[in-house]
Amino acid sequence: MEISMFIAYAVVGGLLALVLTASATLTLHRNDQIVASMRKVQVPDSWLPRLATLKAAGAIGLVAGLWITPLGIAAAIGVTLYFVGAVIAHLRAGDFELAPAAVLTAIAAAALALRVLS
Rank of each mutant, 00 (worst) to 15 (best):
63 V>M: 10
60 I>N: 01
77 I>R: 05
87 V>H: 05
111 A>K: 05
89 A>T: 04
109 A>V: 01
63 V>I: 13
106 A>G: 03
27 T>K: 11
31 N>H: 12
18 L>V: 13
35 V>D: 08
63 V>S: 01
46 S>A: 08
11 V>Y: 03
11 V>C: 01
35 V>E: 09
28 L>K: 05
102 A>S: 10
40 K>N: 15
9 Y>W: 02
49 P>N: 00
49 P>Y: 09
106 A>C: 11
46 S>T: 09
5 M>H: 09
15 L>T: 09
87 V>I: 15
105 T>Y: 03
83 F>I: 02
75 A>H: 02
66 L>E: 00
9 Y>I: 04
38 M>I: 02
47 W>S: 14
30 R>Q: 14
13 G>R: 00
100 P>E: 10
62 L>F: 10
96 F>K: 15
37 S>Y: 00
28 L>E: 08
117 L>N: 05
69 T>A: 05
114 L>G: 07
82 Y>K: 05
106 A>E: 05
17 A>D: 03
104 L>P: 07
110 A>N: 04
38 M>R: 11
101 A>K: 09
75 A>C: 08
19 V>I: 15
100 P>C: 01
62 L>C: 09
68 I>K: 08
30 R>D: 00
98 L>Y: 14
51 L>G: 12
47 W>V: 03
38 M>C: 12
6 F>V: 06
42 Q>I: 06
7 I>P: 04
55 K>Q: 15
